Computed example of a mutant assay.
Amino acid sequence: MELSRKAIPYTPNDKPLHETTIMIVSTSGVHLTDQEPYNTDPSEGDATYRVIPGDVDPKDLTVTHSAPKDHYNTDYPKEDINCVFPIDRLREMVDDGDLGGVAEKHITMMGYSMRLNKINKETIPALVKEVVRSKADAVLLTAG
């Protein structure tokens, strides 16, 4: 199978999970209720991302997304944010001793955007810098 130039090669992690700190990176459109919502106008799109603090209260999170409701129904994550942004599940794993930690920050964006050139050239490099600067050992990718 031929890989795309944009494919990320598999990178094994030798650190045991109970010593690993996880960062969530999501295209589900999650953001803090006091952050600017994502632009849902399909003619404009949104190539921005939001940084979510690691100690966030899940009640302070919501979802803004422009994908059609039959593609991604945001009613469900608004009822339980953990179905797309599993912050409580990660914290439970830490409490149970199965996971080393939850990162100090997480990153989200709206995955349904036609601004792919801008996302590839600007958003993703900026997002990658945020991940690299974090103290996370691994990233959990989620989508809406």
Results as ranks from 00 to 15, higher is better:
residue 61 L to V: 12
residue 90 L to V: 04
residue 50 R to C: 06
residue 79 E to L: 10
residue 51 V to K: 15
residue 10 Y to V: 11
residue 69 K to T: 15
residue 137 D to H: 11
residue 115 R to G: 00
residue 113 S to A: 03
residue 92 E to W: 03
residue 71 H to Q: 02
residue 137 D to E: 01
residue 13 N to A: 04
residue 104 E to D: 15
residue 108 T to F: 06
residue 50 R to T: 13
residue 33 T to E: 03
residue 9 P to K: 09
residue 18 H to P: 02
residue 60 D to M: 13
residue 23 M to Q: 15
residue 122 E to W: 00
residue 59 K to G: 13
residue 125 P to M: 01
residue 115 R to E: 09
residue 67 A to I: 10
residue 28 S to L: 02
residue 40 T to H: 07
residue 5 R to P: 12
residue 36 E to N: 12
residue 74 T to A: 07
residue 20 T to F: 05
residue 24 I to P: 06
residue 60 D to L: 11
residue 130 E to D: 08
residue 72 Y to G: 00
residue 123 T to S: 06
residue 46 D to E: 12
residue 132 V to C: 00
residue 69 K to P: 03
residue 125 P to R: 03
residue 73 N to M: 03
residue 66 S to C: 08
residue 21 T to R: 15
residue 5 R to H: 06
residue 18 H to T: 06
residue 64 T to V: 12
residue 101 G to K: 08
residue 130 E to I: 06
residue 22 I to W: 09
residue 6 K to G: 00
residue 83 C to L: 04
residue 79 E to Y: 07
residue 123 T to V: 01
residue 1 M to V: 15
residue 105 K to C: 07
residue 116 L to W: 07
residue 91 R to N: 11
residue 28 S to R: 02
residue 98 D to V: 11
residue 71 H to N: 05
residue 11 T to L: 10
residue 122 E to A: 01
residue 108 T to R: 04
residue 26 S to P: 07
residue 33 T to A: 04
residue 63 V to W: 08
residue 120 N to A: 12
residue 23 M to C: 09
residue 82 N to F: 04
residue 142 T to C: 01
residue 95 D to M: 07
residue 144 G to A: 00
residue 59 K to Y: 09
residue 34 D to N: 14
residue 34 D to S: 10
residue 41 D to K: 10
residue 62 T to S: 13
residue 60 D to S: 15
residue 88 D to A: 04
residue 2 E to S: 08
residue 110 M to Q: 14
residue 69 K to R: 14
residue 113 S to T: 15
residue 122 E to M: 01
residue 10 Y to L: 11
residue 32 L to F: 09
residue 29 G to Y: 09
residue 15 K to Y: 07
residue 52 I to E: 07
